[in-house]
Structure formats: C-alpha cells, structure tokens
C-alpha cells in the first residue's frame, strides 16, 4: 500500500518551506538570498506579465515531451514485456542506455535538429522515454502466468488481454514513472533553456535576471520553475489516486 498525501500535510510542508527560506534569508543577509516576503509578492505580480509567458513556454515544452515520450515508450514497453525473446536481444542495449545522463547529448541534438523547440522537447522526451519504457516492460513481463491463463480461460484472446490486462496493468506504472521523472525533466529543461531561445524560465533565470544582478526577479523565475515541478508532480499524483485506487487501500 502506498501512503496517501493529505491536503493538511501538504499545507504543512509549504508552510515549513517558506519559514525555512525566511530564516535562511535573515541568517545569510545578503542580496543573493532575498526574503520570500519580497519574492512572493513580486512573483504574483510578474506572473501576470512577462514571467507568465516564460512559464507557459517551459510548461509547454515539458508537457509536449511527456506526451511524446508516453506515446512512444508505452506501446514499445508493452511489446517488449510480452516478447521475452525480443527483450533478450534489445534488453542489454536498453540497460546501457538507461543510466546514461541524456543531457550530455544536448550539443548533438542541437546540431542535428536545429535550434528549435523541437530539439529541447526531444532531449526531455528522451529522458522520460527510457523511464517509461523500462517500467512498462517490467510490469508487462511481471504479470503472473496464472493471471494471464485464468483471463484466457474466460475467453480472452490477444486483443482482450491487451484491453483488460496489459493496458490497465501498465497505466499505474506509467504514472509512477512520470511522477518520479518529472523532476529530472524540469532540471534538464533549465539547462536546455539557457541558450538558443528567448523564452522559457531557464532563459529568464540565467540570461535576463542573474547576469544583470536582478536577484529578486531571478527568484521569481526560480519560484516559477519550482511551481512548475510541484504542479506537474501533484497533477500526476492526483491522477494516480483516481486510476490506481487499488494501490491506496488497506490490505496485505
């Protein structure tokens, strides 16, 4: 059974976070660490203007990458999970590619795909792709033989097995993979947006604010990226709660 995060516990976490930030700002007492009392009002004001556009550009890239990666990795993972012989051939390749940090291919992708949004989305999608591929494959391969046999005995052929066993079995796994990889995705986005673009929170934080010493403004960008990560995480989490109800019930 997984533990459910309650609204109250989340609120408590947020309160503690801002308290800690304020304490550190008081302790450090330098322009590089402004108080949340300065940053938060500025964030709320700027998000309606230019900062909002940067936020939307970043959010759009991550969402596009999530959708593309899921659409490609889920069917491939299902196929590999059901074809152990094929998996034995490509499995070792995946095992090598999976742990390589995909960000190192940034220059290669830029040269190959050009300085467009597409190259940034591809980079992020590659990271999520492997996460989903591996969990979906393992989930499909791990379904007990007895389960498959007994559903077959109810009359299910290949198509019905897909519809009633493989797909419902892999959706919770996809969501969990997305939830844990979304943090990495935003981190890579931050780096990818530092160059060759004029919109995106990464660009805003490094080029527009940090390099001209606008620290409070820089923090609104940082907050934007943090909010983006948190929002994505909880959005996926709330879908998980709905879809994977059986994982959140009391049981053995």
């Amino acid at each position: 059974m997984k533990k459910k995060a309650t609204f109250l516990s989340t609120l408590g976490g947020v309160a503690m976070f801002f308290l800690l930030w304020q304490l550190m700002a008081l302790f450090v007492n330098r322009p590089i660490l402004p108080s949340p009392l300065v940053v938060v009002p500025l964030f709320l004001q700027n998000i309606r203007g230019e900062l909002g556009l940067h936020f939307l550009a970043s959010a759009g890239r991550v969402l596009a990458a999530i959708v593309a990666a899921t659409l490609l990795a889920a069917p491939l993972g299902l196929a590999l999970g059901q074809m152990p012989r094929l998996d034995r051939v490509v499995g070792p390749l995946i095992a090598i590619l999976y742990p390589i940090p995909k960000i190192i291919f940034l220059p290669v992708i830029y040269v190959l795909m050009g300085i467009t949004d597409l190259s940034k989305i591809t980079l992020i999608a590659t990271i999520i792709f492997f996460q989903i591929l591996v969990v979906v494959r393992d989930e499909a391969a791990g379904l007990r033989k007895e389960l498959i046999l007994s559903v077959k005995s109810l009359g299910a052929g290949r198509r019905a097995l897909f519809r009633y066993v493989y797909i419902p079995a892999s959706i919770p796994a996809i969501l969990t993979a997305l939830r844990v990889s979304v943090g990495t995705a935003v981190a890579v986005l931050f780096i990818a947006e530092q160059s060759l673009t004029s919109y995106g929170l990464g660009y805003y934080i490094v080029i527009e604010t940090y390099q001209v010493l606008l620290y409070p403004e820089m923090y609104t960008g940082i907050m934007g990226m943090g909010v983006l990560g948190v929002l994505l995480y909880f959005a996926i989490y709330s879908i998980e709660l709905k879809v994977s109800k059986h994982m959140f019930v009391d049981g053995d």
Binding site: E146, L147, S150, V151, S153, P168, A169, K245, H246
Partner: peptide
C-alpha cells in the same frame, strides 16, 4: 468458451 476454469492462484485482477 463454455468451459469454466478455476486455478489455485485465484487469478483476479489486482486493480479491479
């Protein structure tokens, strides 16, 4: 289709 089979391992879908 009209043969029923029950296995030792119940074979229930865990998510249903």
């Amino acid at each position: 289709p009209s043969t029923g089979l029950v296995l030792q391992d119940h074979g229930l879908l865990p998510w249903a």
